[in-house]
Design a protein around this nucleic acid. Structure first.
Length: 836
RNA sequence: GCCCUCGUGGUGAAAUGGUAGACACAAAGGACUUAAAAUCCUUGCCCGCAAGGGAGUGCCAGUUCGAGUCUGGCCGAGGGCACCA
């Protein structure tokens, strides 16, 4: 009978919150807390992943707010990107209209979750008001030398007809289209992120509140290696060939040089038919990274020889090899087959010399080696390096190389500059123009924004801006000469690399950000999002923060995200019918169960048809139950598995709390007694636990404690506790429930406290005096095995505990006929009798 | 191949070196009901009517009075990187 209508309370409190917005004031007395969840791409409607992400953030934002923090909790839209173009083609809606429509839907959906988001701060990256400032930042970066234009091979996606960044190529395929990526040479815009390689690497250490896993992934991505560059002189033409190595110590084992197919040295070979054929063959090795890695090592003998810099009269052949990368190091190496597996394979194939220069425990013999030895050991066959260990040899040889002026110690990074050009329409136009004399200059800031034209043809292939009849025609403002606009747009990762900064002053018209607002709110105290952004988005954002700092001396912040949390995915069982087709959870009801193949739970995805629509679940169970379930089953950083029973249980709990609340309101007055003290102690302990668990982000355990607290209250209804005491206690527990179930919590508090409860909401305080327990349970062990429990006054001494525990029959039974050698006693915890 | 993380009931999971399985789901049994729904109670495994006992946190060792937790080795699963010289 006494049930709460979840739909009704959802609506009531969402309306209430939008009318009773907390004033957004910069109160100096409070400590700020910037809580940010990764903003969504407006694909159409929200999915469970969003629900999980934003619920985690909301619990934290509400908790911090209730604890007196000045909380910034904004939301926006990562609204440029290809799906809008694809949808435009299919639905005859312009990318702009399609995006706007999606944003409206998704905003409504997010609001139906009851998130404490300040919607006054909403931004959308496809708005002129946003990308205008992005163009300004681009020009600033350009002027600071952080932007460059390079002719490079790019990853060309033949389906999307666009260029992909290396990181957007997954196993040789486009991350969105899944098409096999081709190599193509194009002139592209780059952010010179590699200028910050070392800084980006070293500053990872200062990010104490980031998951180690993410830091490690970034570290590997940046890929620092310390080595040495060495010039080899080519016999005959006396030209120098610069190589990079991390093992200069093995130089006496060098038996060949190898350069990349794209190395300048190959220029002379381009006409040779045998070389053209070799080049063709070397580009034909499969497409996946794994195939490339495992591809056969092939080489082309240039016929050239280089002089060994340390061995007189020794000449070694120069090869072109398919496993040498042009964009790492110098695009050239020396091969030491004895101590590098790739070189070893190569040497075996081309019958090159193998000279061991590092001895393992057994002495290496070149003709008996089956694989390269890459371990440590003492140097041999290496003249002045002999008998040194690898590390010492490295140092000594670098000294020698530098003294001889044939090379230098050198650090190389795997991290490459960030290609930001995209041949797409739905992105931020790059504010550069091409003059007739061939020069490329930025547009004047006063001309910003460079807006996208609305009447574009998206049906032809290629770049729509390039194909537009008039858009690219413009004039150079300074000289008046006619010019052409850059028709590439920016990678959407650029849009998301500074949105968190824009949130600090989202309405500012003339500049990207207000320095004061930025300095107050940044860095983001807690950033929450998916692990899939562990490398790119976070690295690019870290670059942007540094670039902005470089450009504006008033900015002191380097790291944009102080705390990072990566939440797990939402999974669901997968189903297939007998034909092997995926079947959705709704469809399985209609299928004969014996013909259904139930697969492992996997991340919800449209392709596997295992998606549950959040909106329909909210409509059935209410926002609170969905929020609760998203957090209750697993730790927030682990995957959770969606189950209908789980949500139903959360909904049951909503009703249980409501019933308890009603019972308390109708409760008959009782006498105060000893029960009351114990009652308060226990509740205080629960609150202490819940508080700590939220602080530690163990939200699933915090929820378990709330379950326990509610059960304890239910069980205490009949005890001798004054109504007022019970009511106050209920207020505390229901307040602690608020971050998780804000609608139910408000509804209950309204009944408990009356109309103006909302202004009084504060996280319940913990009374330290009540945390001191009067009685403790002590474990009694015999030889480390539990044989009993005993309840004792706190801080009872050893003798007393021993005396009392020996009164227990079962303990005596276990000690009978045995001699006690010693006792292990830990106060308030354990007594352990050790016998012979 | 290299690097990282994780292995606890039928399931998701708890557990500052000190009562393993909190909390929740499922299943089975029971209570209430004419019946069902809803609700509530009981139940990890083996022996036992019970009291109690035995085994038990992937496997094998070690440290410790005491190990899910610490150390070493092995096995398995997942993730990241991948010809980076």
């Amino acid at each position: 009978m006494n049930k709460v209508d979840v739909k009704e309370i959802d609506k009531r409190w969402q309306d209430f919150w939008s009318k009773n917005k907390k004033s957004f004031k910069n109160s100096k007395k409070k400590e700020k807390f910037y809580c940010l969840e990764m903003f969504p791409y407006p694909s159409g409607k929200i999915h469970m992943g969003h629900v999980r992400n934003y619920t985690i953030g909301d619990v934290l934002a509400r908790y911090k707010s209730m604890n007196g923090f000045d909380v910034l909790h904004p939301m926006g839209w990562d609204s440029f990107g290809m799906p809008a173009e694809n949808a435009a083609r299919e639905n005859k809606l312009s990318p702009k209209d399609w995006t706007k429509k999606n944003i409206a839907t998704m905003k409504r959906q997010l609001q139906s979750l009851g998130l404490s988001i300040d919607w006054d701060l909403e931004i959308s990256t496809c708005d002129e008001e946003y990308y205008k400032h992005q163009q300004e930042l681009f020009i600033d970066f350009y002027n600071k030398g952080l932007v460059s234009r390079k002719e490079t091979y790019v990853n060309w996606d033949p389906v999307d007809e666009t260029v992909l960044a290396n990181e957007q190529v997954i196993n040789g395929r486009g991350w969105r289209s899944n098409a096999i990526v081709e190599r193509k040479k194009l002139s592209q815009w780059f952010f010179n992120i590699s200028k910050f390689s070392n800084e980006l690497l070293e500053d990872l250490e200062g990010l104490k509140e980031w998951p180690e896993k993410v830091k490690l992934m970034q570290k590997n991505w940046i890929g620092k290696s310390i080595g040495c560059e060495i010039d080899f002189v080519i016999e005959g033409n006396e030209k120098k060939l610069k190589i990079f190595t991390t093992r200069p110590d093995t130089i006496f084992g060098a038996t060949f040089l190898a350069v990349s197919v794209d190395h300048p040295l190959c220029k002379n070979l381009e006409k040779k038919e045998s070389f053209i054929e070799f080049k063709k063959k070397s580009s034909q090795v499969g497409t996946t990274e794994e195939a490339i890695a495992n591809a056969e090592k092939i080489g082309f003998d240039t016929g050239l020889k280089a002089r060994h810099p340390f061995i007189k009269n020794k000449k070694i052949p120069i090869f072109v090899a398919n496993f040498i990368l042009m964009d790492y190091g110098t695009g050239a190496i020396f091969g030491c087959p004895a101590h590098d597996q790739r070189d070893f394979d190569f040497a075996k194939k081309y019958k090159l010399e193998i000279i061991p220069v590092v001895n393992s425990e057994k002495k290496l013999e070149s003709n008996k080696m089956k694989e390269a030895y890459t371990g440590s050991g003492k140097m041999t066959n290496s003249e002045f390096l002999n008998n040194l260990n690898v590390e010492a040899a490295k140092e000594k040889i670098i000294e020698k190389i530098e003294a001889k002026k044939i090379g230098n110690k050198k650090t190389s990074f795997r991290l490459k500059d960030w290609g930001i050009s995209r041949q797409r329409y739905w992105g931020c136009p790059i504010p550069m123009i091409y003059l007739k004399d061939g020069s490329v200059v930025p547009v004047e800031k006063s001309e910003l924004p460079i807006t996208l034209p609305e009447n574009v043809d998206l049906n032809s292939k290629g770049n729509p801006l390039e194909n537009h009849p008039t858009w690219k025609k413009t004039k150079h403002k300074k000289t008046g000469q006619s010019a052409t606009r850059e028709t590439d747009t920016l990678d959407t990762f650029v849009d998301s690399s500074w949105y968190f900064i824009r949130f600090c002053s989202p309405k500012l018209k003339d500049r990207p950000f207000d320095e004061k607002a930025l300095s107050y709110w940044m860095p983001v105290d807690q950033y929450i999002g998916g692990i899939e952004h562990a490398i790119l988005h976070l690295l690019y954002s870290r670059f942007f923060m540094r670039a902005i700092k470089l450009n504006d001396k008033k900015i002191k912040i380097k790291e944009p995200f102080k705390g990072l949390f990566t939440q797990g995915m939402v999974c669901h069982e997968t189903y297939k019918n007998q034909n092997g087709d995926w079947v959705s959870p709704e469809e399985i009801k209609k299928i004969d169960k014996s013909k259904l193949i139930i697969g492992a739970p996997e991340a919800m995805s449209k392709s596997k048809k295992n998606v549950i629509d959040p909106q329909s679940m909210i409509n059935i169970y209410g926002a609170d139950a969905i929020r609760w379930f998203m957090l209750s089953d697993s730790p927030p950083d682990r995957d959770i598995q969606w189950s209908n029973e789980g949500v139903a249980a959360a909904n049951k709990f909503v009703q249980r709390v409501w019933l308890l609340n009603s019972k308390i309101l109708e409760r008959k007055e009782k006498e105060s007694s000893k029960d009351e003290k114990n009652f308060l102690i226990k509740i205080n302990k629960y609150l202490f636990k819940i508080t700590n668990l939220i602080e530690k982000f163990q939200l699933n355990v915090a929820i378990a404690s709330i379950y326990e607290a509610i059960r304890f209250l239910e069980e205490s209804l009949e005890k001798n506790i004054k109504n007022q005491c019970f009511l106050n206690t209920q207020i505390k527990i229901i307040t602690a429930l608020m971050p998780f179930m804000p609608h139910l919590s408000c509804e209950c508090l309204l009944r408990l406290e009356g109309k103006d409860f909302y202004s009084k909401i504060k996280w319940p305080s913990i009374e330290n005096s009540l945390l001191i327990e009067e009685e403790v349970t002590i474990v009694i062990q015999v030889n480390g095995k539990k044989r009993g429990l005993i309840l004792m006054k706190k801080d009872t001494n050893e003798d007393e505990v021993i005396r009392e525990s020996r009164k227990i029959q079962n303990i005596e039974k276990n000690l009978k006929d045995k001699k006690i050698v010693k006792n292990i006693f830990v106060k308030n915890k354990i007594i352990n009798f050790i016998t012979t």
